Computed example of a mutant assay.
Amino acid sequence: MIKFLKLFCYSALVALTMGCSQQKKIAYYQNIDSVASLGNQSFESKIQPDDLLMIVVSAPDPETAIPFNLNSESVATPNLQSMTMGQRQHMLYLVDKSGNIEFPVLGTINLTGKLKGEVVELLKGKLQQYIKKPIVNLRVMNYKIAVQGEVTRPGVYPISSERITLLEAIALAGDLTIYGKRNNVLVIREVDGKKNIARVDLTKADFINSPYYYLLQNDVVYVEPNGAKSNSSTFNQNIPVWISLSSVLLSLIVLFKK
């Protein structure tokens, strides 16, 4: 009886220790109280090759802005009364591989490495030669990120706000599964034609100050599977073997009893 109680207490202690260890691997922001300053990071997207930009120029005198806007086109939209009715949609600027766009009247403009706000100021400066008090509105129309691996809904997600954090991207994908490595999330980012790879530990709040806290256009987030999934997969694959061995052992026990 005493031996049984000792064995029970030991098993309970092991289970409790494993439970605490597992919780540390799953919980986010575990050291958030010890982070001295989370800072006030400002974020603005950079223009990249292959971006599709909607740029609208306006002015107090609307007629003066017309030559500096691309022609809009009519796009058909389903309508209960008529399928031919549509709405006007602005044509988009495609940023080429060299970071250039062709702007009406102004010609070729290079946007390489420029923040969205910098592009707006650049265009305003050039337009002031032709327009009094020009107004420039710019929007990236194909801003997207990809989330892969051990998440509930992997996929490519378009971002309408042009601003998204790593945590928001993971939330869009339905959060990590129980098998995802929370302490080793991979972020793949292309900068000036080169692939940069970073590993982020979501269990530590320090990553909030990381340059990978805010995702950029076309970033790829990959969540690796942890050892538990590998072990689980191996065990599941070997279930038929375990069943066969159990059957053989049971047959031998019955045979020897006779």
Rank of each mutant, 00 (worst) to 15 (best):
Q23P: 02
I26Y: 07
Y28G: 03
Y29N: 14
Q30C: 01
Q30E: 08
N31G: 10
I32K: 11
I32R: 15
D33E: 14
S34M: 14
S34T: 14
V35N: 05
A36G: 09
A36M: 06
S37M: 03
S37V: 09
L38S: 03
L38V: 15
L38M: 13
G39H: 02
Q41S: 15
S42D: 14
F43T: 07
E44N: 11
E44Y: 03
E44Q: 15
E44T: 14
S45K: 05
K46H: 06
Q48W: 08
Q48P: 03
Q48M: 11
Q48A: 12
P49Q: 01
D50L: 11
D51C: 00
L52R: 12
L52T: 10
M54P: 03
I55F: 00
I55E: 06
V56C: 05
V57D: 01
A59Q: 12
A59V: 02
A59C: 04
A59R: 06
P60K: 04
P62T: 10
P62A: 08
P62W: 02
E63I: 13
A65S: 11
I66L: 12
P67G: 07
P67S: 04
N69D: 04
N69S: 06
N71V: 13
T77L: 08
T77C: 02
T77E: 11
T77D: 02
N79L: 03
Q81C: 04
S82L: 12
S82M: 12
S82H: 05
M85R: 14
M85Q: 12
G86C: 03
G86E: 03
G86K: 01
R88H: 01
R88A: 00
H90W: 01
M91R: 15
L92G: 00
L92T: 06
Y93L: 05
S98Y: 10
S98I: 06
G99A: 02
G99L: 03
G99I: 05
N100K: 10
I101K: 00
I101D: 01
E102D: 13
F103R: 03
F103A: 09
F103Q: 07
P104G: 08
V105C: 05
V105L: 09
L106G: 09
G107W: 06
I109Q: 13
L111R: 00
L111I: 04
G113I: 04
K114M: 12
L115E: 13
L115G: 10
L115T: 08
E118D: 15
V119K: 04
V119E: 07
V119L: 01
L122Y: 00
L122D: 12
L122R: 03
L122K: 08
K124C: 08
K124A: 07
K124Q: 14
G125M: 12
K126H: 12
K126P: 09
Q128R: 14
Q128H: 04
Q129W: 10
Q129I: 09
Y130S: 13
I131V: 08
I131R: 05
K132Y: 11
K132H: 08
K133H: 11
P134C: 05
N137M: 13
L138I: 15
R139G: 08
R139I: 06
V140P: 00
M141S: 05
Y143P: 01
